[in-house]
């Protein structure tokens, strides 16, 4: 794992995308600091992070697109499979390297509240609590990016899908106001989600029985719930969209609450997508 981590770090320092990632993050947070802390003279640095989080839509897919896709394209994944290290070690090594790359601009950003504190009153616990949450939220998005990269050998495709998914997640709360909150609408949305889940299971396991079985069970559950008590499905879709949003949960930190449930949620997302990435790599061995 350490060997993979060191090698990835060395490769990132040769890669232009790493510098684009760092530069865009610093630029966006910098612009936010100018707008909020300097021009509007607001002393809350957490507002800047809330503003800056939008840039994740672009920079996370740029950073993560090559992490596994490139290995597949260059056939270097064969080397990783033949080395005496496990797939989990490979994925964790790569993920930790990405986190270290992400930490570099974040360390610079961490100095900002201290600088602003020289010129006025900055509530540092909220500022640094938000920076920590900003780091963990970014880590969760990076884990999603790693998984998307593991699905293809086309970096452009990985970046495109990554941008679409993170953008959807960013706007999911606003979009939730426009989707149907009726029980029937929820059933239709759930059926679509179940079909998508079935397709992912089929892709990962290449096992039709498991994919169809899980999909059929979940669909039966939804239909039975609809017939027995349709009121339980009312407002389900907007509720799910709000709950799944990583960005919405960050608002609690901006409002000065260090929300442990959000931290647990982020960590769960990280573990879930790293697990899926390992499975996706293993799948190639078992296809």
């Amino acid at each position: 794992m350490i060997a993979v981590l060191k090698h990835e770090l060395r490769m990132y320092f040769y890669s232009l995308t790493t510098y684009v990632f760092g530069a865009l993050l610093l630029a966006f947070v910098g612009v936010g600091a100018v707008l909020y802390n300097i021009q509007a003279a607001v002393s809350n640095f957490e507002f800047v992070l809330n503003f800056g989080s939008l840039i994740f839509v672009i920079i996370v897919p740029i950073l993560t697109m090559r992490v596994i896709a490139e290995e597949r394209k260059q056939k270097t994944d064969q080397l990783l499979y033949s080395l005496p290290i496990t797939t989990s070690q490979v994925v964790i090594g790569k993920y930790l390297a990405l986190l270290l790359i992400y930490l570099i601009p974040l360390c610079l950003i961490s100095i900002y509240p201290l600088i602003f504190a020289q010129f006025g009153e900055v509530y540092l616990p909220t500022a640094y609590g938000s920076i920590l949450a900003f780091f963990i939220m970014g880590s969760a998005l990076i884990a999603i990016g790693v998984f998307i990269s593991s699905l293809t050998e086309n970096q452009g495709f990985a970046a495109g899908i990554g941008i679409a998914i993170i953008l959807l997640n960013y706007y999911s709360v606003r979009l939730s106001e426009y989707v149907s909150s009726k029980a029937r609408g929820s059933v239709i949305a759930m059926v679509i989600l179940i079909v998508l889940l079935g397709a992912i299971i089929k892709y990962l396991t290449k096992n039709n029985h498991v994919a169809y079985g899980v999909s059929a069970l979940l669909m039966a559950g939804v239909v039975i719930t609809y017939w027995v008590d349709s009121s339980k499905l009312e407002g389900l879709l907007p509720h799910i969209m709000r709950k799944l949003s990583l960005f919405e949960r960050f608002n609690a930190f901006v409002n000065g609450v260090f929300d442990m449930t959000a931290i647990v949620y982020y960590l769960t997302v990280i573990l879930f997508f790293l697990f899926l990435s390992v499975q996706s790599l293993e799948k190639r061995r078992y296809n």
């Binding site: 090698h7 490769m11 260059q74 056939k75 270097t76 064969q78 080397l79 033949s82």
Partner: peptide
């Protein structure tokens, strides 16, 4: 116990 060279050498071009 094994050293393996696949058909296409698995090399990182920037290294």
């Amino acid at each position: 116990l094994i050293g393996y060279l696949p058909e296409q050498p698995p090399l990182y071009m920037t290294d």
